[in-house]
């Protein structure tokens, strides 16, 4: 079952990546933290997000032929974006683990 695990990891990377990209936006940042994020944090979040999405592609490529892997990846991104959007609209606090490395301001 390593293929299934790798694909699950690809999906998780997709979700995390979309999550970080969303949290780099003021409106979604405010669903978890107060104020506006510092410029440096925004950049960090975007880099984290893009890296996670790239990692998701890499994982897809280890499982399948490049043509199949690219399709799986594009569809994974769509599904991840939907999951993040619905999580933000109903249970934003579930995304807190994505900011666990960042101490909340007191």
């Amino acid at each position: 079952m390593p293929d299934a695990l790798l694909l699950a990891a690809a999906l998780l990377c997709g979700i995390a990546g979309m999550g970080w990209l969303a949290l780099a936006m003021d409106v979604h940042w405010r669903q978890l933290r107060s104020g506006t994020p510092a410029r440096k944090i925004i950049v960090t979040l975007r880099v984290l997000g893009s890296t996670a999405l790239a990692a998701s592609l890499a994982l897809c490529l280890t499982v399948d032929h490049v043509s199949m892997a690219s399709l799986v990846w594009v569809m994974t991104l769509a599904a991840s974006a939907l999951i993040i959007a619905f999580t933000l609209s109903t249970r934003p606090v579930w995304l807190a683990p994505l900011l666990v490395w960042l101490p909340a301001r007191t």
Partner: peptide, 25 residues
């Protein structure tokens, strides 16, 4: 891109969902 506000008026949330499902996929 990630916006869906189900608790707003029907019009607003319907449009959010329309844009969301149209754009991400």
């Amino acid at each position: 891109f990630f916006t869906f506000r189900p608790k707003k008026q029907t019009q607003r949330s319907a449009l959010d969902l329309h844009n969301l499902t149209g754009v991400v996929a």
